[in-house]
């Protein structure tokens, strides 16, 4: 609702702040993105469809979105556990662990990619252990999931952490007094309260995974049709001066990401219906 009354808020009014928001989003987000669409509009409809549905491109969508969803799922489970431990337990080195969680935010993605590739390659520290069991991570699609998990972890931990802090121990005690066992307390009391924040964390982690480039190209092996991600394909097109093709693929990615995030947001709102 548009506010009519004056001087009923401490902060500057609705008008100036909305104006600023629209201007700011336009400069930072909307204008660059619409330039992208304009560039792609240079193609005819047929050319556009051909470009974005080429088999190699389709395979890359599958690798990118599939890996990002799997990585976000992994993060949603383990990120919640990490957040739970950090909030609920006091142990020596807790602050250090807490700081470690943010490291994937700060580390240059190329560094992360090279490090992961080194450790998980068949002669790396961890790869050496896995190799005899027939598990190869570096230079396979598994490597993509690993890199996406690495860079997405802080998103889940940092969105879930404050929500766990708000869940009073008394809620668990109340559930136990009422006869609930441990599993019932978790499923009926804790999970529903955490769910909205877990979904937000999932969405952020997923979005980050879809957009990731730097760390993945070092560990993925980048085999066309198998372990080639869409962002890499776009770069390849750019290097071949196929600007229109690159922007066409980018448009598809943009649309797919936006609609998935929209769905996740609606889902998140539904799980929080009790707070309204």
């Amino acid at each position: 609702m548009i506010q009519r009354k004056k001087h009923n808020n401490v902060l500057p009014g609705f008008g100036p702040s909305l104006g600023f928001t629209i201007f700011y989003l336009s400069v930072i987000v909307l204008i660059p993105l619409s330039a992208l669409v304009f560039r792609a509009a240079g193609l005819t409809w047929g050319e556009f469809i051909d470009t974005v549905t080429a088999p190699r491109v389709l395979a890359s969508y599958k690798v990118t979105f599939g890996s990002a969803i799997i990585a976000a799922c992994i993060n949603s489970v383990f990120g919640v556990i990490v957040a739970w431990v950090l909030v609920r337990y006091r142990f020596p080195g807790r602050r250090i662990v807490d700081a470690l969680v943010d490291l994937p935010f700060a580390l240059p993605t190329a560094v992360a990619g090279i490090t992961l590739a080194t450790i998980y390659s068949p002669n790396g520290w961890i790869g050496k252990i896995l190799e005899p069991h027939g598990i190869k991570i570096a230079f396979t699609p598994l490597g993509i999931i690993l890199a996406m998990t690495f860079i997405g972890l802080p998103f889940v931990v940092r969105t879930v952490q404050p929500v766990i802090e708000e869940i009073e121990v008394e809620l668990e005690e109340a559930a136990v007094c009422l006869g609930a066992n441990r599993l019932q307390t978790i499923l009926r009391v804790i999970v529903p309260l955490l769910l909205p924040s877990v979904i937000t964390g999932f969405a952020l982690s997923f979005a980050r995974g879809v957009g990731e480039y730097g760390s993945i190209i070092f560990i993925a092996g980048n085999m066309p049709m198998v372990s080639e991600i869409t962002p890499l394909l776009i770069i390849t097109k750019l290097e071949q001066f196929d600007y229109r093709g690159a922007t066409a693929i980018a448009c598809v990615m943009l649309l797919a990401s936006f609609s998935m995030l929209l769905v996740i947001n609606l889902l998140q709102r539904w799980t929080r219906r009790f707070a309204e």
Partner: peptide, 11 residues
């Protein structure tokens, strides 16, 4: 058991 701050399940 009744708690001071109710401890109702808000969801």
């Amino acid at each position: 058991f009744v708690f001071q701050h109710y401890a109702l399940f808000r969801h």
